Amino acid sequence: MKISLKRLNSDYLFECTNSIGNAILLDNISESEGTKAVSPMESLLMALAGCSGIDMVSIMKKQRQIVTGFSAEVEGERIEVDEAKPFKNIKVKFYLEGEIDPVKARKAADLSFQKYCSVSKTMEPNVTVEYAVYVNGEKA
């Protein structure tokens, strides 16, 4: 796996491109008013939600669950370590809609975070990741 990074302005706006040409914009959002990019730390939260979301949808398809809606909210708590501010805790909430057995949805999340999600595994053991699953408005 390989990406390239290119600076786009005289400040902190970067374009990151993968090997097939798909790109995202990264910026120092604390210093860039009106930016249309995300910060590198926000991109980590997005990657975690995306990675576990892919896992969960894949698992639930195999379980023949009908997922008509899938979204997530992710919050990261940071701490100061010398001059850096890494994540200490991350909380993920998944919101699923459809003909879904709540027990199967929770099992899909458990499998993702405990076994399959490479982003979550990369953060271990330094970051505590907590997650909750809501199916049709009810906590699973």
Rank of each mutant, 00 (worst) to 15 (best):
N126L: 10
Y116F: 09
K2T: 15
E80H: 01
S32W: 07
A23R: 05
D55W: 04
E99V: 13
P102G: 12
K62C: 02
K121Y: 11
A37M: 08
A72V: 10
R78L: 03
E75I: 08
S118V: 04
L5Y: 00
G98N: 12
K91R: 14
V129H: 01
Y116G: 00
S118A: 07
A84V: 14
K62M: 11
G137S: 09
E83R: 10
Y95K: 08
T68N: 11
N136Y: 09
Y12V: 09
K62Y: 06
I79P: 01
K2F: 05
R78I: 04
K36W: 06
K61Y: 10
E33R: 03
I54M: 13
F87V: 04
A140E: 07
S30A: 14
N18S: 09
I20Y: 00
P102Y: 11
V38Q: 02
E77P: 02
K36I: 13
S30N: 14
L25K: 03
F70Y: 09
E31K: 05
P125Q: 05
K107I: 14
E31T: 15
E31P: 03
G34Y: 05
K6V: 10
A49F: 05
N126R: 10
V129W: 02
P40M: 12
V92F: 10
C51D: 07
R7L: 15
S71R: 11
P125S: 01
V67T: 11
K36H: 10
D110G: 00
A23T: 08
I90K: 02
L8C: 10
M56F: 01
V129Y: 03
F113N: 08
E99I: 13
F87P: 04
F14D: 13
A37T: 08
A47P: 07
E83Q: 14
I29E: 04
S43F: 12
K107W: 15
K121A: 12
V81P: 06
K115F: 09
S58A: 14
Y12C: 13
V133Q: 01
V67L: 08
I90R: 00
D110P: 00
G34C: 05
R7C: 08
E97C: 02
T35P: 01
G69D: 08
E31W: 05
K139Y: 03
T128R: 10
S19E: 06
Q65T: 10
N9P: 10
G76C: 04
S4R: 09
C117W: 11
L13H: 01
T128A: 05
S71W: 07
T68Q: 02
I79N: 05
P40A: 12
G69S: 11
S52D: 04
E77K: 12
E130S: 07
K104R: 15
A108L: 07
L111D: 03
I20S: 07
K93T: 13
L111G: 02
R7I: 15
P125L: 06
A84N: 11
T68Y: 12
M41R: 03
I24S: 00
E138A: 15
I100T: 14
G53D: 00
G69W: 03
M46V: 14
S120T: 10
E15H: 06
K107T: 14
P102C: 09
V92Q: 12
A132M: 13
V57D: 07
V133C: 02
I90E: 01
V129R: 02
E31R: 11
